[in-house]
Design a protein around this nucleic acid. Structure first.
Length: 110
DNA sequence: GGGATGACCTAGA
DNA sequence: GTCTAGGCCATCC
């Protein structure tokens, strides 16, 4: 497994419950701002990783649950988010800006 | 080997 | 706010 993948999973695991982040934020944190597609692709393989990777806490830049179709059920992703106190409407996170967790800020090395 | 696809983002108009 | 173009790189055909 490439370090990039492992790094992605590691960052995703650091996302606190009730918070979400975006693929681009992770990509930027890893030093490849334009490799966001790779982050999404890494998520495609996240279910094979241990420990569990909370992929439901990763959405696109506008808070849309673009990856919900990759979960076992149709509304699994949404229900898990709601279980953590995040409101989801029309496959989109309500008050996304308030729930947003930016690794570039929260995990800032500087 | 080449071409297409994908849980995306940024920049410019 | 919209649209288009380019880029990232693993994986599949």
């Amino acid at each position: 497994m490439n370090p990039f993948y492992l790094d992605v999973y590691d960052v995703v695991r650091l996302i606190p419950a009730g918070r979400v982040t975006s693929y681009g934020a992770i990509a930027r944190y890893l030093g490849s701002p334009q490799a966001s597609r790779m982050v999404g692709y890494a998520m495609n393989n996240s279910h094979t990783q241990t420990p569990y990777v909370p992929a439901h806490r990763v959405v696109n830049r506008i808070g849309l649950l673009t990856g919900k179709h990759h979960f076992p059920g149709e509304n699994v992703m949404q229900q898990m988010l709601e279980n953590e106190g995040i409101s989801v409407k029309k496959d989109k996170i309500v008050y996304f800006k308030s729930h947003f967790w930016d690794p570039n800020v929260e995990l800032s090395i500087d």
